[in-house]
Design a protein around this nucleic acid. Structure first.
Lengths: 376, 376
DNA sequence: GTGAAAGCGCTAACAA
DNA sequence: TTGTTAGCGCTTTCAC
């Protein structure tokens, strides 16, 4: 069956015996036009009877806003191993809903530094604003240009420091804090030979920060960070497995490991086990992220929990603020469209993001050598 | 800084000394208009110099197509535990790129049965087509209406049977096949008391099928499926942990477990371990999905691998077929826009999806009681 | 080969 | 309080 010709505002207007303007006013809930309740009612009924749904493109073209935002992630296949990203995605999406916004998903993996997809998304007016997750260093310049062009932009996973550099709103935490939590706990347990396995060879800020946190905390405790206790994996368990094997082969004899993420920790646990090392007796292990399976590792994994959902939520709220949306969308009746996102004026009022990111938290389980508390 | 007034096709036309029409022809690569190479060149240069990016909304309004498709998932927070979904998302996105399409992400969790978001997406012309993942039973009627309205629709995770019922293209496998693989392997190892833990209380087709596969395979082998060896969890590890505890408490004394997914298997392993049961000696365990951590469970998890990436890829190819796009997009120069997706005519040629879904595969590791092959 | 002109369906001044 | 009238920026038919 072929597509039915869609119902237009014209038809609704005709059926209700009013002009298209009135239909537009009623359906967009323009209050200060003082539409008479009876007229309003008539239009609403006509729209409902015809099953009218406004054409989003026509609306966007005329109004200049799309009620759509983009979430740009470095690579979507990180989703396989990066639980933090999965949570981010889910919470950003949920928050979008609350603001009546649609979410366009974009991965930056195919973009060269010159022709970045997010720039084009913004310039083709497909979206009203965007959130960029963990931008690479070489993307900061094009991103600054996007921000300078007045396009609402939030950088997620970038500590506030980047705000001056890029002119974009930044939501993120210095993950050195989490690293400190993990490493100082291990130091407190008496460990001196604490290894670190990074997850991205310093390509991402978060990884570099975590390594720096490891260094700083050791140094502050009067322990020299040893390069023979430093290894790099990727995000995956297998990479952690291999990195741990290299660490063991190098002969540095770590008594504890701080893994850049939980998935890597899983791989490391296996490598240790295969090498005949008992965890935590021969080597304590601490991970990062508190993925759902962390509590189900053998032994259960001590890890640093950061609130990914809060990150996503706050980033989206910041973006909504830049877009000039602050309240939840009013629940509109029947065929009425989602409220259109109004463009912020020049120099939008800086969004007050009341909520702040909760501090990371160390979740102590069996793998670091303390008697295990309740599972989970 | 406020938003710069965007460059329009008019300006490009002026600079190139041609009409807007010609600009449109050149930039859309309209071949049969026989644009003179010199003119073409002039337009291209003007566009590049001005940094022209066509307004996507205007283009969609005029052409009727959006070059955007939606991916509708039941709930996005399933992403925390459902690795299959993560892979689906990544592969659908990657394939979108190849066709020059944008991806709108939509979760169906907020939709009541009456006002389904995907219906409105399609009717507001925000998208050219959509892929719906694991539709619920009560969504099939609205989905059939979408298909009947001529909107390109692919159902993912729905075996071909649903094709007649919904009028939509269905991409999926009967997961009874995978269940059979797992259960018959256990039977082959001599197990008679084989338990099953489902992941969704039969709410989703895939779960019901898996349970049915468990029943059928047992029955075919002359073993009566026992209700005291049947339990239900959710998708998560903790739910698997609890379900396994209930199974143990019920006293059915299973010698093997088939878990509805790997995450549940992780939970079950922990419950068994805490109860003092050795795996695989006292109870063999087989999972489903082959998540990246499956090989790193202790013991390494035997599991059924289905090719999620292929599912996503093929679904997207099917959708592209319905949209009348089949080739990869031509790589267009500089400022040229993405090729617009042409609407399929009435009664589009049924897409020939050459690629078929690979059959599920049993990955044998240590947890089912066979000497463990190489890790990974 | 190229241009003129008529929309696509909606919004929003400005009139009435 | 409502209707008239221009566009928004692009595509596309038809005439030159």
């Amino acid at each position: 069956m072929s597509r039915k010709a869609p119902v237009t505002a014209q038809q609704v207007a005709r059926l209700a015996g009013v002009s298209p303007t009135t239909v537009s006013f009623v359906l967009n809930d323009v209050r200060d036009q003082g539409i008479r309740p009876a007229t309003r009612q008539r239009v609403l009924e006509a729209a409902a009877r015809l099953g009218y749904q406004p054409n989003a493109n026509a609306r966007s073209l005329a109004s200049g806003s799309t009620a759509t935002v983009a979430l740009v992630v470095p690579r979507l296949d990180h989703l396989y191993d990066d639980h933090f990203l999965a949570q981010l995605l889910a919470s950003v999406n949920a928050e979008c809903h609350r603001f009546g916004l649609k979410l366009l998903l974009e991965s930056a993996e195919h973009d060269s530094a010159t022709a970045t997809g997010f720039v084009s998304l913004a310039r083709t007016r497909r979206i009203d604003g965007l959130i960029v997750v963990n931008p690479r260093q070489d993307q900061l310049v094009p991103l600054a240009a996007v921000a300078a062009a007045g396009i609402p932009l939030v950088l997620l996973g970038q500590a506030a420091a980047a705000e001056a550099q890029t002119g974009a709103r930044c939501v993120g935490q210095d993950t050195r804090i989490g690293a400190r939590l993990a490493v100082s706990h291990l130091i407190g347990l008496g460990h001196m030979a604490i290894a670190y396995i990074g997850f991205a060879g310093r390509a991402y800020v978060a990884d570099a920060e975590r390594e720096q946190g490891w260094r700083d905390t050791l140094t502050a405790a009067g322990i020299a960070p040893r390069d023979d206790l430093l290894e790099f994996g990727a995000l995956s368990a297998i990479s952690g497995y291999q990195a741990m094997q290299r660490l063991l082969a190098a002969g540095g004899r770590p008594t504890a490991l701080f893994a850049g993420n939980d998935t890597i920790a899983f791989g490391a646990l296996r490598a240790l086990q295969e090498a005949g090392w008992a965890v935590p007796q021969d080597c304590a292990v601490v991970g990062y992220d508190d993925i759902p399976l962390a509590a189900f590792a053998a032994p259960a994994l001590t890890t640093v929990r950061t609130d990914a959902l809060a990150h996503g939520r706050i980033a989206m709220q910041a973006l909504a603020g830049l877009l000039g949306l602050s309240a939840a969308p009013s629940v509109t009746v029947t065929a009425t469209a989602t409220p259109s996102a109004l463009n912020a004026d020049a120099n939008p009022v800086p969004a007050l993001v009341a909520a702040t990111l909760p501090a990371p938290e160390l979740i102590v389980r069996a793998s670091c050598g303390v008697r295990r508390p309740a599972a989970g």
